[in-house]
């Protein structure tokens, strides 16, 4: 008999034990290891995919940021250009204004110089004229200049118009104080008496007169009483002379500035200067 049934049973048992052993020690650990490795590889691949996606996202973001930066830079550059242009315009305008102001100032100082010069000329002329007049009067007349002045003053007093005389009378009547006769130099006694007599005759009243010396008059005599004044002095004449010279200078400077600002050829071409 080829089949030994005890051996068959024992072999079935052996085989079952071997199945269990193989499952325990071979298949399970091997399959587990393969599964673990596959899982790990899958995880790594997923991780790589995620990283790649992230990298792409970051790249896109970076690109976008770059573009934005470029845009911003261009905007800033154009803005800066505009600002520089505006600043340049402003500075040019300022410089122009400063130049205009300087020109105006210069013109003003020129005008001032002219005025000062004219004043100096006036003063000088005044002094010179006075000196010449005084010298000439001294040389020409036998009597002193003051005497002549007194005479002239008396004559003017007598030659006053009726209206002026009335005003003076009113002034003397209302005034409480004496009438003042001011002169540049001390008047001699005779002249003082003559002036007092002339006043009394002209105003038909007894007037108390006080004599004062005032060098400001330059040379001359004036009568003041309660705000009213009758005078003859070189100062008056000099004032009128100064006025005349001043008008002359003004008249001279005006055409100069007018010529400077307006082109003169236009009038000439029209034939209507």
């Amino acid at each position: 008999m080829l089949i030994d049934w005890f051996t068959v049973g024992a072999q079935v048992l052996n085989f079952l034990v071997l199945v269990w052993l193989m499952k325990r020690f071979l298949y399970k650990p091997i399959l587990d290891a393969i599964d673990a490795r596959e899982k790990r590889i899958a995880a790594e691949l997923a991780d790589a995919d995620a990283k790649m996606a992230e990298a792409q996202k970051e790249r896109a973001e970076f690109q976008q940021r770059n573009e934005e930066f470029d845009r911003n830079r261009a905007a800033l550059l154009s803005k800066a250009k505009d600002e520089v242009k505006a600043e340049r315009e402003r500075l040019l305008e300022e410089a122009r204004r400063a130049a205009d102001a300087l020109t105006a100032k210069r013109q003003e100082s020129m005008v001032n110089d002219a005025r000062n010069l004219s004043q100096a000329i006036t003063r000088r002329t005044q002094d010179e004229v006075f000196a010449i007049a005084r010298k000439t009067l001294n040389d020409l007349a036998g009597t002193s200049l003051e005497e002549r002045m007194a005479e002239v003053f008396i004559r003017r007093l007598r030659g006053l118009s009726d209206q002026a005389r009335q005003v003076l009378i009113e002034a003397f009547k209302t005034g409480s104080g004496p009438a003042f006769v001011r002169s540049a130099f001390e008047l001699p006694e005779g002249q003082r008496a003559a002036i007092g007599t002339a006043l009394n005759e002209t105003l038909s009243a007894d007037v108390r007169v006080e004599f004062e010396t005032t060098p400001d008059l330059v040379s001359g005599i004036e009568l003041t009483s309660n705000g009213q004044k009758v005078a003859w002095s070189i100062s008056d004449h000099l004032a009128s002379l100064e006025k005349g010279v001043g008008e002359l200078l003004k008249g001279k400077s005006k055409p100069e500035t007018g010529d400077g600002t307006q082109p003169g050829g236009a009038k000439d071409s029209n034939g209507n200067p």
Binding site: L2, I3, T7, V8, G9, V12, N14, F15, L16
Partner: peptide, 10 residues
């Protein structure tokens, strides 16, 4: 044959 019979029975 005992072994192969055992395997076949399994």
């Amino acid at each position: 044959l005992s072994t192969t019979a055992a395997l076949a029975l399994c």
